[in-house]
Design a protein around this nucleic acid. Structure first.
Lengths: 199, 199
DNA sequence: ACAGAATTTTAATCTGGATTAAAATATTTG
DNA sequence: CAAATATTTTAATCCAGATTAAAATTCTGT
């Protein structure tokens, strides 16, 4: 899960760099973090980063791609697990949260898409929208199979994704909190979804 | 509700400026938005902003103070409304969301506190923590009075606040969506809170 | 230990955007 | 209307941080 492309030293270092960058970006924003900040976290000089990436914009772009990949994996795993729509939604929430607070993190919040190159922006936006639609699809599936009560699918999806996306803003790496997140978020965020037994 | 300090032209223009800044910051981040961006939204030159504010940092700071004020008002109104803990939580969610998407918005997401001056950072952090604790207090009140089921209060509070804080990332001012948000968010976000009738 | 490739640093540029001071324009008041 | 005040613009500075090229170092395999 979240396997670095290959085992070459280059790939490993690049992966370390993307994590460091994600941590910085989440803390201080894209423009707010200098390449020196990221490099410092790696014990390197800012110029060294250019060996791995063409420029700063590409660094964010890659962070976002990485986050999108993780989200897609969480989605795929949730679907693959089978069960009702509600089961999948809960499994997805747990999986995505785990991706953020678990060993594959930190994962960059995709909060500054406007700063990307037009081409990169389009690509990330496409991935992002596709992912949102897929999640809304799970909710609709649940409504169809009776495991989820009728609701405003779009708003519900936005609310749940927002709660997850905000995690990096208050989570700072402590393992105990990580456990509480993955343990409780599925319940907290699906409380309104579970279809009432029938009144 | 979000009353501008006084009616002088200065105060009115300053308030306009804070809204424009909030809009920019939410879209492109603190360092990502230039003063020219904010000024453009007001039909002004970047230099003109210095008539209202000492520097860029103070501009963010004031945006955050404004957001904190709104949050506090929503909290006060929710408490003043009386009823059970759950009633207050629901009223608070609606009120805060209304503050963000309603006529007093846009409201800046407090997502780049680290960029503030130490003094300002401390002040905003204090306000922010106090607010989070107040919200958690509502949840505890609900648990005590039986309107809310036992839960991990901290995680639940973080989840709900996250969903609300993320709204500006996907809400772009259209009135129909604003209505759906204030109408559905209280239900969506308290689904897991409502105490089950007793099994 | 050595050649060659991989990685990092040093030392300059270069640039966008914050900031400032002085000048210009608009607004208010008597 | 004219003086006084309030607001905005023009036209420089100034600087942090991105970017680059060349040099230095570290690594790898033999």
């Amino acid at each position: 899960m979240a396997t670095p492309p290959d085992e070459s030293r280059f790939a490993l270092q690049k992966d370390r760099m993307l994590r460091a960058a994600a941590q910085c970006f989440n803390a201080k924003g894209y423009s707010g973090t200098s390449l020196k900040d990221v490099a410092a976290l790696l014990g390197l000089t800012d110029a060294a980063l250019y060996y791995y990436v063409r420029n700063k914009e590409e660094l964010v772009y890659l962070c976002y791609v990485r986050a999108a990949d993780m989200g897609r994996e969480a989605m795929a795993a949730a679907v693959a697990g089978g069960g009702s729509g509600l089961d999948k939604v809960r499994r997805y929430i747990a999986g995505h949260a785990e991706g953020i607070v678990g060993p594959s993190g930190p994962m960059a919040i995709m909060s500054e898409i406007p700063s990307l190159t037009p081409a990169h922006r389009d690509e990330i936006l496409t991935l992002s929208r596709r992912h949102s639609r897929a999640f809304e699809g799970l909710i609709e599936e649940g409504i169809a199979d009776g495991s989820i009560a009728a609701c405003d699918v779009r708003m519900t999806g936005n609310a749940i994704m927002g709660a997850i996306n905000w995690i990096p803003k208050w989570f700072h790496g402590d393992a105990a909190t990580a456990r509480r997140i993955t343990e409780h978020f599925p319940d907290i965020l699906t409380g309104s979804l579970a279809a009432r037994p029938k009144s």
